[in-house]
Each structure stands twice: as structure tokens, then as C-alpha cells.
Simulated assay, not measured.
Amino acid sequence: MSEGAASERSTEIEDLARDLVRIPTENPPGNEGAAAEFVYDWFREAGIDATLLKEPDPDRPQVGARVGEDGPTVVLNGHLDVVPAGDPDAWSADPYAGVVEDGRLYGRGSADMKTGVAIAMLVARDLAPEIRSGELSGSVVVHAAMGEETADPGTRTLLERGFDGDYGIVLEPTDFRVATSTKGLSVYRVAVEGVATHASQPDAGRNAIDEARPLLDAIDEYDAELREREGSLCGGAFATVTEIEAGTGSNLAVIPDRAELVLDRRVLPGEDPDAVDAEVEALLERVREEHGLKASWTRIQTYASSSIPVDHPLATILRDRSVEVVGAGGDVGAGGEVGDPWGIEAATDARNFVNDAGVPAVTWGPGDLDQAHTVDESIDLGDAGIARNVLEGVVREFLE
């Protein structure tokens, strides 16, 4: 590749990723619409068939695009939504300005995962002439999905509506490691009951905050027990309280009669969500019996875990291509061993491919997962260029 062509490719990915970052798509509330329309228009201008799909939520469209009709099909998956940026003053620059400095793109979604979406778009466009001419005997599908950050069925709906294939690559930031398994999670809202009274007479009631103390201790014990269990490629299971609320919306002098907490339980491949429900119920029942606790729970969010064999051809080819470029030990990024089998600790939409559509899928991409959801989130654009080349080569190998 000539120096000029390489420079053009570098500029191209920088511009496209930055354009996507500059479109706020925070979820919640879930405002992917403007970004979906941008992606749809980009595909149409590139002469690629695309659909602006208004399912599963008509107010939150997503995009499915396809190049080719027959042969093996590789699906390149990315999501448009990002977690809220929080206080913009905590950032070094506007989180939606798309600032590029010292070869890094900064902004919410730069790593997680709008650069991955940009790479998928460019790879599909670049392979389109060879697919149409018959030089490559297969198809490429691109997802620009809604709702991944809150377990909405964006990717699942795209797969159900015909934007499926034989292989799936979910372009989350993994530092070029190939994840053949993903950890899941079950999120619970636990309500603890007390008896309200005036704060000047606390003994006349039962403070729901105090009632929750033995439950918090029990959750700590549960977490410790989970950490002793045999792990997986994704690491171990955890149980963590991520939110607690009591006494809000009332007079400051009222002893609260209700406390609610959110329990995040990380689920390993092979664990049954119903069995996890049973563990949570057993935990609460023990605290009820030992401390007279009045409490109930509801599962409010679920991401299933997923897994395919570590030696599946998709994983092997992508792993080998990555090692050729960045080295077996991970010379690019701060991750682990690129050449080793691996599972990602986070939940990804690979589960929708594997569990819902029966399509083997891996999670792989440039960037550091530690950048996701952080202040001053960023990605090395040099890594993005490497990922584009690797991905194009892998897709080409499956379509030849």
C-alpha cells in the first residue's frame, strides 16, 4: 500500500469515527435516532443496501446493511448507544466534541464502540466491489444496533429480521484479543421494608436502612463464596450492590419505611439464570429467618452469558491474524495475551448470535475495555487502522 493510500485510510477512519462520536446517543434515555440516520445515509451514499429498522422501538431506530446475496455471510456487529457522559466539567474536553490529540480520539463512545461501528462500515464498503463482481463468493452484513447498554433487543431484532449470517464478530474493545465466551449478568432490585416514624422517636419504628444492614453483610458473604468457585475464561462470578436508596422523596425528619438496593450478579457461561434466581431467594430467606427481615426481589435486567469452542475456525483465524500483526503477547494496547484463548468479563451482544440465532460469534476489536464508561474515554486511532486491516483480511478469507 502506498504512503498516500495509507494516509487516506487513516484519515477516513478518523473522520468517520469522530463524526459518530459527535452524535450524542446516551442510553438511558436511548436517543440513537440521529446516529442511526447518519449510518443509514452513509450506506446509501456508498451504494449499499441498508434498512432503517424501527423495531423493537419506533422511537429508537437502528440500521442493518447487507452487501451480497449468497455464500458464506459474516456479520459485523456494533451498537450505537453509549452510557451517559456524566458531568461534562469532569472531562478534559467536551465528551461529544470528538477531539483528536496525539493520535487518540477522545469522547464518549470512542472506544465503546463507535470506532468499531466505523470499522465495520468501511470494511463492508471496501469489499463491496469484489463481492458484486463475484471475486468474493459471500456476503457481509453490518449491524448498527440500539440498546446494547441496557439489554434492549436491538441486535436480536436485527438477526430476527434477516440481518443474520454464518459468523458474527462483535466489535467491542478487546485489545485485539478474541473472546469466545462472554460473561452475563442478572440485576435484581431488592426492597427492604421498615416502619416509618418521626426521627425524634426512632425506636417507635423500624428504620429500613438499619433493616438492610444484615442483608448487605449477607451479600458480601455471597460474593466471597462466588469468588471461591471455579472460574471460566471470563474470570469469576461476583455479587455487588451498585445502588441503594432510602428516605428520598420524604420529609428529612422521617425514619424511612423502605429501602431499595440493586444487586449486580455476574453470570458465568454454563450458569442458569433461574438457578441464580434461586440463590438470591435462598440468600434473602436466610436473612429473613435470622433477622426477621421483610424483603422481596425482582430481576430487572438480564444479559445471558455465551460461549463457543475456543478452536472454532472463526476464533482461530481471527486470533492468528491478530497475532501476525500485534504479536502473541499483545504488543498493542494494555490487554493480555493476544495469542491465548480468552473470555471477556463484560456482557456483549455475542449472546444474541450464539444463544438466540445459533450463529457462532466472537467479541473482538481495537481499544482497551478499561476505557469504556470512563471520563476522558479514548482510543488509539493507529490501533483502529490495524483493526480495519485485520478485519478486512479475516472477512476476505471467509468469503474466498
Rank of each mutant, 00 (worst) to 15 (best):
A224G: 03
G109D: 07
V280R: 14
D376G: 09
P84L: 02
A196V: 07
A204C: 03
T240A: 08
I308Q: 08
T115D: 05
L399W: 03
G329T: 09
L226V: 08
I119M: 00
P269C: 09
D217R: 14
E8A: 15
G116S: 10
R286D: 14
G168I: 03
A35E: 05
K183N: 08
G98Y: 04
D380H: 10
S139K: 01
P72T: 12
P88L: 04
D175N: 15
R22Q: 15
N77D: 15
A328C: 05
A151P: 11
L293T: 02
R60L: 03
V323S: 12
L399E: 01
E243M: 14
D70K: 10
G103I: 06
E279Y: 06
R266K: 11
L158N: 00
R388M: 09
P313A: 09
I13V: 15
D376H: 11
E211N: 08
P24F: 06
A144G: 15
G134D: 00
G385A: 09
Q371I: 04
A35W: 05
T363H: 04
V323E: 11
E377H: 06
L314D: 08
D274E: 14
R108C: 12
I169N: 07
Q201S: 13
R18P: 00
E281P: 08
L215G: 04
G367W: 03
A199G: 14
D277A: 10
A65R: 01
R206Q: 13
E149H: 02
V323K: 14
A372H: 06
S139G: 02
L127G: 03
D87N: 15
A384H: 07
E3S: 14
P28A: 10
D203Q: 13
R177T: 00
E12R: 15
Q201F: 13
D272A: 10
G64N: 02
I255A: 02
G30C: 09
D49S: 15
T150S: 09
A35H: 06
A372D: 05
D331A: 15
A144T: 09
G168Q: 04
F353K: 02
A387L: 09
S250V: 14
G4N: 12
P28F: 11
A346G: 11
G184K: 04
L284V: 08
I255S: 03
P95E: 01
T302I: 12
A85I: 11
R104G: 01
G335A: 00
E260T: 15
V262N: 02
T25L: 08
A224R: 15
A208H: 03
R66T: 10
L127N: 05
V326Q: 02
G330N: 07
D70S: 12
R44S: 11
K183Y: 06
L20A: 12
V75Y: 11
E225H: 10
P366F: 05
N27P: 09
G235I: 02
R177F: 03
R388C: 05
A204I: 00
G235E: 04
P173W: 05
E221P: 05
D274G: 12
K54W: 07
P61I: 07
R266H: 06
E45I: 07
N31V: 13
L171A: 07
A218R: 12
G168D: 04
V241T: 12
N355T: 13
I23E: 07
L159A: 00
